[in-house]
């Protein structure tokens, strides 16, 4: 293939992915009730968990400070995790209807189809992450990390969402059933959240949870966010965890493309 036709193919794929993303965003914007609930949910978490665990910071070894300030990065990451778990639903809808076959019969690049789904979840999570941080600040959280810290929080949320969204797509392409996808999503979301430092400081968690958390992408994302938002970020640690997230997202996205290939063979 000549260099020019490769360029042409790449730009066609980008235009297609962009238009497919737009399709998802537009469908989302037409569901104000859904948007309202997804925005209110993290706020409820902030208020509820904020009250419930308010005095947890007084536990020796937790490190003091305000719990809202501690918890907000955790809620951002949990929001990304829970929202991206449903990414595969859109694929199942498309497969059940003739939409997927219509795309496969068209010259749409295969990569653009998955990219559209993932780009949509990335965009909506970036917006949501920003909103949750602002709500946290409104409730009294203070961040010395400033704008850079907030940007890194959004990056962490988006990377986790792309990774877990890819995983959700992989499951959807393999099982092709709503109920199964819901079961798998629910199986992973809560344990991954609680096997991390999202809500409780690592220092007060049992040793085995600390060991597991070290391999948990949810914990990596929380570390990036909390680290970057702190007064004196350990950039080495923040960037290392960011790197883990990039690798995780890359591997899971690659697995999703493999599952897509398997799906296409079975059509």
């Amino acid at each position: 293939m000549s260099e020019r036709s490769i360029q042409h193919n790449a730009s066609a794929a980008l235009v297609q992915a962009g238009n497919l993303t737009l399709r998802e965003v537009r469908a989302l914007m037409r569901q104000p009730f859904y948007i309202a609930v997804t925005l209110v949910q993290p706020m409820v978490w902030l208020l509820l968990f904020g009250q419930l665990f308010k005095r947890v910071v007084e536990i020796p070894g937790f490190g003091g400070g305000s719990y809202i300030g501690f918890m907000t990065p955790g809620i951002v990451v949990m929001t990304a995790l829970f929202a991206s778990a449903w990414t595969g639903m859109g694929l199942i809808d498309d497969m059940e209807r003739g939409v997927m076959n219509r795309l496969l019969v068209s010259p749409t690049k295969r990569g653009a189809i998955l990219t559209g789904k993932l780009a949509h979840i990335a965009v909506s999570l970036a917006v949501q992450a920003l909103i949750v941080v602002l709500v946290g600040v409104a409730l009294g959280a203070r961040y010395d990390g400033g704008v850079i810290g907030v940007l890194m929080t959004i990056v962490a949320a988006v990377l986790l969402a792309i990774g877990f969204g890819s995983f959700s797509c992989t499951v959807a392409l393999l099982v092709r059933q709503r109920e199964s996808l819901i079961a798998v999503a629910q199986f992973f979301t809560l344990p991954l959240s609680f096997l991390s430092s999202a809500l409780v400081a690592e220092s007060v968690a049992p040793g085995w949870i600390r060991s597991v958390a070290r391999f948990n992408p949810v914990d990596w994302a929380v570390s990036v966010s909390r680290g970057a938002l702190s007064a004196d970020p350990d950039w080495g640690d923040v960037l290392a965890h960011c790197g883990y997230l990039v690798i995780m997202a890359g591997v899971l996205a690659w697995l999703a493309t493999r599952a897509f290939t398997a799906y296409r063979r079975s059509v």
Binding site: R26, A27, R97, G98, V99, P107
Partner: peptide
């Protein structure tokens, strides 16, 4: 793919 159009048995429009 560029030469053909396809109308599948299943509905293929996006209802949203």
């Amino acid at each position: 793919r560029r030469l053909i159009g396809y109308v599948s048995q299943k509905p293929q429009f996006d209802p949203e």
